[in-house]
Every structure is written in C-alpha cells, then in structure tokens.
Design a binder for these strands. Structure first.
Lengths: 164, 164
DNA sequence: CAAGATTGATAGGTCAATCTTG
DNA sequence: CAAGATTGACCTATCAATCTTG
C-alpha cells in the first residue's frame, strides 16, 4: 500500500535517513579504494561507461549531464578535465552545430576497463554483500521507481538514461 | 541468502546504480524545495537536529563530523557559517580543552522547527509516496545494516550516531 | 607522540550571464 | 526568442600542515 497523499510516517522517514547516510558511507569507501588502486573515481567511471554504451561511443554534453545528474556548467568543466587526461575528445556535431559530442578515446575505454574489477569488488564488499537477492530486488524496484517517476521533474532525459 | 564472498551479480549491481542516481535526484529536488521555501538545507538541518537531540543541545565538533559524514576541516567551516548566522555557538569544553562544543541557539532551534514541515512534505512527495510500508521497511533494514556494519571503517562514531 | 580543531591551498560544483546557432 | 555550451564569480569540501592540549 503506497501512501501518496498521506503524511510522512516514521517508517518512511527512517528509510529516507538510511538512504542519505548509506550513500555517504558507501561512496566514500568505494572512492577511497578506487583512489588507492590508482584508477578513475565513481563520477568519471559513470561518464566513461555512458560513452562506451552509447552509439559510436559518443554523447552530447547535455545528455551526459542529464545522465549523471550534474549541471550544464558542471559537465563542461568535467569534460575539460577528462579531455585533458586524454579520456575523451570533443567533436563538433554536424547535425546541430550548437551541440558538441564527447567521444570516448581508446585510452578512455582502457581506463574504464582497468577500473572495473576494482570497482566491482568494492561494490560487492561495501554494498552487495550486506543484502539477500530478494532485498537487492526490492532496492532496485523502489529506488528505480523513484528515478523514473521523479527524474523528469529535473530533466526529461534523466529517466531515459537510467534504463540503460 | 547473502553473498559475502561471491562476485557481484547483476541484481546487486542494479541496486547499487539505483542507490546512486536516486540519491542524486531526491536530494536535488528536496534541496530545491527547501531553498524555495527559504528554510535551511538538508545538510544544515541534519546538524541542527543532531544538536537538538544531544544532551544539553551540544556536541563536540568531531562528533558532528562523524554524524554527518564530513571531514574535520569541513565541520570547522560549516560551524563557522552556522555560528555567523546565529544558529549555533562555540563553547570551550572544560573537561578536555582540546575539544570545542557547538551549542544550539534558540534561533537554531526555531529555524529547524520552521524547516521541518517543508522538509517532511518534500520527503513524502519525492521519496515516501513511491513505496509501500513493506518496501520502506526493507530499505531501512538493508541500508541501515550497511551503515552499522561499514561506518566504523570510516570512524567508530558514525555507527553510533545513526541509531538515534 | 596522539587527538581535536583550525587554516591555506586546492579541487570541484553551482548560478547567472554570454555567445552561437536553430 | 529558445537551446546548447561555455565562462566568471562564488561557494563549499577536502588534504596537508599547524597549533594546542592530553
């Protein structure tokens, strides 16, 4: 039974509090391990993966921003850094000359591949191992539902990107 | 069935991805509404609440840092701002003169109380309404378990603070 | 020396304004 | 004018170094 119009109850309040703090703890621990292993961090990984999965390994700046839930200026500066590190390249879009494509480079792809075993193990150690398969299923259903139903309030594309 | 030593499977990977993105979306939406209503943001709210719930409405700087999962220098600068806004006051600790107490002011308490109705409604609208009571229960159990079992890896006190 | 708090340098993010193109 | 990207001004968090106290 959902409670769309009811007041927030104690159970949902505790669920919300646990979302905030568990996110903080888990991402800090995972980022620490990625750093120790000398591979890219969570945020960069997400960008590289999004590009790798996209057709022709390229996405418009705005589409990346929607995916990782960052501002337009934020993705400009993040792309600056990644381009400077040789992980992606900017490419003019011939269809709409206002848009700029970010294209994954071979180095970008190999860096993502190098990071994945470390990242996968960290997700398992700090997150996955604490839950049953059924619990994982519930988390994905509920939190995924929130994204698909609320993300369009921020930007229409966020919902789309989550599905991939 | 937990999978402590197994490799990360697809289900848990999707659960993790949904944690990252739902946290981003939900906190951005809630913070936007708090800002529009002219009340304190999520981070500040958490500090004020922690102080209000503490004995004599005071906590040492480090204890606040552990609670909200922020660095030591971070809490120093956050406390600077809150003190400047009159929401808390610094007070020397007579027992251990290395420590500094942050004490909640009457204005700090009233600002938290003024923010709560807005915050509560936002949590319900962007988070609570999307789940059943049973799902909320599972979220709290799983994510809370992660915090109590992993937080001590960061700092012993984080686990403690989560229970309140 | 270790713990608690602070500070300087730095990294990374947002908002508002601007430029270019549709 | 609206959309995409960028830039400048600004805000906030972290790390390393420092200071004080146990």
């Amino acid at each position: 039974m959902y409670n769309p119009y009811m007041a927030l109850d104690e159970q949902r309040k505790k669920a919300y509090a646990s979302l905030l703090i568990s996110h903080s703890v888990v991402t800090k621990l995972i980022d620490r391990r990625l750093k120790e292993a000398g591979v890219v961090g969570i945020e960069v990984y997400d960008v590289l993966l999004a590009l790798e999965e996209a057709p022709e390994q390229r996405l418009r700046m705005s589409d990346i921003a929607d995916r990782i839930v960052i501002s337009r200026s934020g993705i400009t500066r993040l792309a600056d850094r990644l381009a400077h590190e040789g992980l992606l390249e900017r490419l003019a879009c011939p269809m709409d000359r206002r848009s700029i494509y970010a294209v994954l480079t071979p180095k970008g792809m190999s860096e993502r591949e190098r990071a994945w075993p470390v990242y996968r193990q960290a997700i398992q150690d700090y997150f996955g191992r604490h839950m049953t398969s059924e619990e994982a299923q519930v988390l994905y259903q509920v939190l995924g539902r929130i994204v698909t139903e609320e993300a369009e309030t921020i930007t229409p594309a966020t919902c789309e990107s989550f599905k991939s």
